[in-house]
Amino acid sequence: MTTDTTQSDTTQSDTAQTAPVRFDTKIAVILREDLETWQRLNVTAFLVSGLGTHHPEVIGEPYADADGTPYLPMFRQPVMVFEGTKEMLTAAHGRALSRDLPRSLFTSDLFTTGNDRDNRAAVRTVPGDQLDLVGMAVYGPRNAVDKVLKGARMHP
């Protein structure tokens, strides 16, 4: 009887470890469709960089290779990247604000600054409804993030 229970527990454990993980939250980035490739990559990196500092639950465990060399932890779940028009990004920004979801933004002005202090100053000078958004990251419950991104398409 004990052997059967152990085998059953092992089988359930193996199944749990191989079953796909579905998260109830979503990390998503929406980029304006008219950005150049280097801008898309740069904006995406900047947008997600602060997420783990305010929401440490999105960060997984550190990595190590077979030699024991340590590597930094990464997000525990995928980052979904979308694209849309300038108008779509503005609408998504408004929906993220109305749902009070954690978000970060990147405006066109930030392409002309060279440091974090000037980046913050550039955003601070523009009212929220007049920001020239080129990208936004949002995190929250999957269904709420999906509503924020309504109409956006997956980045190719």
Rank of each mutant, 00 (worst) to 15 (best):
R120G: 11
A92F: 01
D116I: 13
M80W: 09
V134F: 00
L72N: 10
V134T: 00
H93E: 08
M88Q: 15
D109K: 05
P70N: 04
G68P: 03
V138C: 05
N115M: 06
T125A: 15
G151M: 06
T125M: 13
G84N: 03
M80N: 05
A137I: 03
A92E: 01
Y71G: 06
F75C: 04
D146E: 12
R103H: 15
N115E: 12
D129N: 15
D100Y: 11
R103M: 15
V81W: 00
D100I: 10
L101N: 08
G128W: 09
A121M: 09
D109H: 11
D118P: 06
A91G: 09
R153M: 11
T125W: 06
P127F: 11
A91L: 05
M80F: 12
G135R: 00
Q130R: 12
L101A: 08
N115C: 08
T107E: 02
G135K: 00
P127E: 11
L133K: 00
S104V: 11
K86P: 03
L89R: 00
D132S: 08
G84T: 03
N119S: 13
R76T: 07
E83K: 01
T107A: 08
M88A: 12
A144I: 09
R103I: 08
T85A: 12
Y71D: 04
L131K: 04
L110D: 00
M88K: 11
F82D: 00
R99F: 13
Q130S: 12
R117A: 13
V79H: 08
A152G: 04
F75S: 09
A92V: 07
D132Y: 02
T85L: 07
M74N: 11
L131Q: 08
Y139P: 01
K86V: 07
S98M: 13
Q77D: 13
M74P: 04
Y71Q: 03
K147T: 15
F106K: 02
Y71N: 01
R103L: 14
R153Y: 11
R95T: 11
Y71R: 01
A122M: 10
S104R: 10
R76H: 03
Y71M: 05
P73C: 13
S98N: 14
D132K: 03
T107R: 02
V126G: 10
F75P: 05
R95P: 04
E87R: 07
A137F: 07
L89K: 00
R99K: 15
R95G: 08
A96H: 03
R76M: 03
A122G: 07
Y71F: 15
N115V: 04
P73H: 10
